[in-house]
């Protein structure tokens, strides 16, 4: 593999390995559909595309920074108390995000309600800190964090897109379904706005994803 000859000299910023860190979570290592982490928030805040977008950006920010901080501190953190250190770092970053959201986009912050706080217990973040940032240099950790958060964001946006389109007939708050369709008798599916449809939408996304990539099929 190409990893052997790059290990000697200084690795370029976007080496093949680092690119994979960024791109794998978008597809075959997707944190939601494959690793099953961080499901809670995917479902609750995807009624509209706008809230999904804000949430995705918040998670990318928190995760990238948390991974860098833990990775920088990885040699000084005593292993016995690492979980509480990780929680403290994440919680501080989430407080920052929460205050920023409250200051600049108050209405979205109200809609997200407790789910901003719940980024703290989003298992993707803890999972990546444990599995990657504790053993790797800051730059790869940053890429890994951003990549995983982006993989999470992609699913979030897909679910948000379909739920808002089918449920309210709008995207980002703008009506997109042309009026003549309503005249012909088309109606918004109010069911898509209700909580259970989020689960079923994610179920279908997983179905499509695994159908296209047969290696992921659960054989147990």
């Amino acid at each position: 593999m190409s990893e052997n000859n790059t290990s000697k000299q200084k690795e370029p910023l976007f080496s093949h390995r680092n690119q994979r860190l960024l791109s794998n979570p978008l597809g075959k290592d997707n944190p939601i559909t494959v690793q099953v982490l961080g499901i809670c928030s995917v479902l609750a805040i995807t009624v509209q595309l706008r809230t999904s977008l804000v949430m995705a950006i918040s998670v990318v920010a928190v995760m990238g920074l948390a991974n860098v901080i833990i990775s920088v501190l990885r040699k000084t953190i005593p292993p016995r108390i690492r979980i509480i250190v990780q929680l403290t770092v994440i919680a501080s970053l989430v407080i920052l995000v929460d205050q920023l959201l409250k200051a600049y986009i108050y209405d979205v912050s109200r809609q997200l309600s407790v789910f901003v706080g719940l980024i703290i217990t989003n298992c993707i973040i803890m999972g990546r800190l444990e599995a990657f940032a504790l053993n790797n240099k800051p730059w790869p950790s940053f890429l890994d964090g951003v990549g995983n958060a982006a993989g999470y964001g992609v699913v979030l946006l897909t679910v948000g897109f379909f739920r808002e389109l089918l449920g309210s007939g709008t995207l980002l708050g703008y009506p997109v379904i042309p009026n003549f369709l309503y005249d012909l008798g088309y109606e918004n599916n109010g069911f898509m706005i209700l909580p259970p449809m989020a689960l079923i939408t994610v179920g279908i996304i997983i179905w499509v994803h695994r159908h296209r990539d047969r290696n992921l099929v659960d054989i147990s």
Binding site: T33, V36, L194, P195, P196, M197, A198, L199, I200, V202, G203, I204, I206, W207, V208, H209, R210, H211, R214, L216, V217, D218, I219, S220
Partner: peptide
């Protein structure tokens, strides 16, 4: 269960259906 739905996928869909019941 269809192979790609096995495990995680079907669990999601069942949870959705249970959610509809709880509604």
């Amino acid at each position: 269960v269809p192979a790609p739905l096995r495990g995680l996928g079907i669990t999601f869909i069942i949870t959705g259906l249970m959610g509809i019941g709880f509604m």
